[in-house]
């Protein structure tokens, strides 16, 4: 089906980009392996949708596509939470800078 061709092409592109970034030292090799496993697993599910259904049955979910949706929601939740934590970390760094600036002229009493 056309959708399979498009998705497989996207996965191949993602795979190539991942390893190009690893070669450019933008990401670590361990990260590239992790992402590659995700692209390969997605490719397997795209080419053999019944694999997802078998996996879904293992978890007690009726259809493979439902399992993919549930997993995606969980994955996106984790990603958003990670972004929140990153944002909080940046906020704290900003506060440290603002504090250092605010206290610049506060000197001990004997000075």
């Amino acid at each position: 089906m056309l959708i399979q061709y498009i998705l497989i092409l996207a996965m191949a592109l993602a795979f190539v980009t991942t390893w190009r970034r690893a070669m450019q030292n933008v990401i670590r090799v361990s990260e590239a392996i992790g992402w590659s496993l995700i692209w390969i697993a997605a490719s397997v599910v795209i080419l053999q949708p019944e694999v997802a259904t078998r996996l879904a049955n293992l978890f007690g979910v009726g259809r493979g596509v439902d399992l993919v949706v549930y997993a995606s929601v969980a994955g996106l939740f984790l990603l958003v939470f990670k972004l929140f934590i990153l944002h909080e970390s940046l906020e704290r760094k900003l506060t440290d800078l603002v504090r250092r600036d605010a206290l610049r002229d506060v000197k001990p009493p004997h000075e």
């Binding site: 900003l94 603002v98 504090r99 002229d105």
Partner: peptide, 27 residues
């Protein structure tokens, strides 16, 4: 009062910590 100023709003907790560190520096 001795006034110290955050250039941007950072929240009450941040201001308290800044003030606490300022007070410690003041002995």
């Amino acid at each position: 009062a001795t006034v110290v100023r955050h250039r941007v709003n950072r929240g009450q907790g941040a201001a308290l910590r800044t003030g606490t560190e300022g007070a410690l520096r003041m002995g």
